[in-house]
């Protein structure tokens, strides 16, 4: 392996890690500001100019809090659960490409792909890691040995298993249209336009798949209006009721990083990744960032607009509406691919 490329790979990995961390911090600020906007408040404004240093203050506050553990908790699993959550959240982003090949101003001969690990079954890896992240929550709920935590953990595992099916079927539709399991291939197939102005994005041919993906994605990341594991009126704080300080921060981090990952995968699968007008491929990552930011804004907007569903409504919606819809979508897509060719 040529040395500059190897160094660039390691640099890229570190860069992605740091960017994910700071995106979580950024999202905390955005979430508060957007919430304030939607509720006609001002939001954080005291710490730093326009409250921009508020996330930093939050982090410092969390770090200096005391680490508490219930005496009846299972010590090992109690410590392990937030680590699983955070690890899965970061690991999933490793296979997500976020830009075309770049030579970094000519420093790297041959070009570097903006993706930590180029796996040819990338979509399945994302799906696999998403299905592993349920363990963090379930174990947190069980090991805390508290009724709120346990109920929150059980609810979340049921919810995540239910919505994972729709999530997977929505992915399968895109796989059929894109005719590949590699995210890079799928993004590259979305280059170009129809009739000169309709972008060749899969959201155009898979609108229902996109809606299913977004709905299931919100449920997978446990965000409102599907935030049952932590429905505060019923369950205090759900699975992380007993967590404090840095282990709570890890759950918090995992939630935001998961949101970023789901948005990034949605961008790659449905919104054409780094392809867009006006910008050349080498700086296409600007388009990627803009699209991810738009989806993240949508997430926050949903959270502060829609009331929380009731638990049985959520389950009925997942199994009786979303799943059949996803199956029909997959069948129609398969028939279309067979008829028109991909």
């Amino acid at each position: 392996m040529p040395t500059p490329l190897f160094i660039a790979q390691i640099g890229l990995t570190l860069f992605v890690f740091v960017m994910l961390l700071s995106s979580a911090a950024g999202m905390v600020y955005v979430e508060r500001k957007v919430a304030a906007l939607l509720q006609q408040r001002i939001g954080p404004y005291l710490v730093g100019p326009k409250g921009l240093l508020q996330p930093l203050a939050d982090i410092i506050k969390l770090m200096f809090k005391e680490e508490l553990r219930p005496s009846a908790a299972d010590a090992f699993l109690f410590a392990l659960a937030p680590i699983i959550s955070a690890t899965c959240a970061f690991a999933a982003f490793a296979v997500v490409p976020f830009g075309g090949d770049t030579t970094l101003l000519g420093l790297i001969p041959g070009g570097l792909r903006l993706q930590v690990a180029d796996v040819n079954v990338a979509i399945l890896v994302v799906f696999a890691i998403a299905s592993m992240s349920v363990y963090g929550i379930v174990l947190a709920g069980w090991s805390s040995n508290s009724k709120y935590s346990l109920l929150g953990g059980l609810r979340s595992s049921a919810q995540m298993i239910s919505y994972e099916l729709s999530y997977g079927l929505a992915l399968a539709g895109v796989l059929l249209v894109g005719n590949s399991l590699s995210l890079t291939d799928i993004v590259n197939r979305q280059a170009g336009t129809w009739l000169g102005f309709i972008p060749h994005w899969f959201v155009v041919v898979q609108p229902i798949g996109f809606l299913i993906y977004m709905t299931a994605g919100i449920a997978e990341t446990n965000r409102a209006p599907f935030d049952f594991p932590e429905a505060e009126q019923e369950l205090v704080a759900g699975y992380h009721t007993e967590y404090s300080s840095m282990s709570f921060a890890m759950f918090f981090l995992a939630e935001y990083v998961n949101m970023v990952t789901v948005s990034a995968v949605a961008t790659d699968l449905f919104l054409g990744g780094w392809h867009g007008p006006f910008l050349s491929e080498s700086i296409g990552w600007i388009w990627f960032l803009l699209k991810v930011a738009a989806i993240l804004f949508f997430y926050v907007w949903m959270r502060w607009t829609l009331p929380r569903y009731r638990y049985d409504q959520l389950m009925r919606f997942g199994w009786k509406i979303l799943l059949p819809l996803a199956v029909v979508n997959l069948l129609v897509t398969a028939a279309g691919v067979l008829y028109f060719g991909s």
């Binding site: 079954v121 399945l124 799906f127 696999a128 592993m132 349920v134 953990g153 595992s157 298993i161």
Partner: peptide, 24 residues
């Protein structure tokens, strides 16, 4: 690699969740 990923999705992601669920 396909079997490897399916192993994680089906066994670790689905069957073992079911086991954990029942144990809990």
């Amino acid at each position: 690699p396909f079997v490897a990923v399916i192993q994680i999705i089906v066994y670790a992601g689905a069957i073992m969740v079911l086991f954990l669920f029942v144990v809990m």
